[in-house]
Amino acid sequence: MIELTHITKEYGKRKSLNDVTFTFEKGKVYGILGPNGSGKSTIMKMMAGLVYPSKGIVKVGEKKADRKIASNLAFLASEGMLYPSFKIDQMIDFFHSQYSDFSMEKAEELLVFMELDRHQKVSQLSKGQQGRLKLLLVLSRQTDVLLLDEPFMGLDPMVRDTIVKGLVSFIDYGKQTVIITTHEITEIEPVLEEAIVLEKGQIRAHCNVEEIREEQGLSILEWLKSTFKQEDVS
């Protein structure tokens, strides 16, 4: 369980997050949606303990989120996770040496699944291969919380599909709390249980994905558009 209690983050005068309160329940898959600059990445970094709130409290499990939280939380950052001079297997060994929950067995399975060549250098990988390697590194860990910040950014539809399949195959459902920020809603929708819409640093809406289809006959993308349209009119 992750609890955000009245969190605000200020960068100078600008508020990246403004009095956000929300509880992510254990074992569910959440999507955080919203335009650029809505505070998606800030919220993720905060839960990962990499950024501290100006006001409010972030708790992961029973602990306050700080740098040490990483021992029980895997974070796929949108930038700067890979070392260009490393080979893929060196990247894997490095993660293995840093995290005691890193499973070499899972990493081997994922190497095959993601069709990666262990001898290739990170600097020589395509964007799609880098995206797959990043996912391999976080999915090989056995943590209670998995945070994926823009896992699809800059990737073509085929790679996005592989990544969705990888998530379905390797997430520990019911045990791992998974939070994904993305713009590629259509691809990820069948994997999500709950969706949250962030705008201008605040939570604008929160819904259960299947309920929206059942009650309103809308996909999340359509729901998102209708939510924003209604607000614009009023």
Partner: peptide, 14 residues
């Protein structure tokens, strides 16, 4: 079935 269909296993449970 969840992997084949690319959906959350809870959906298949349902």
């Amino acid at each position: 079935m969840a992997i084949q269909s690319g959906v959350n296993p809870n959906t298949i449970q349902r």
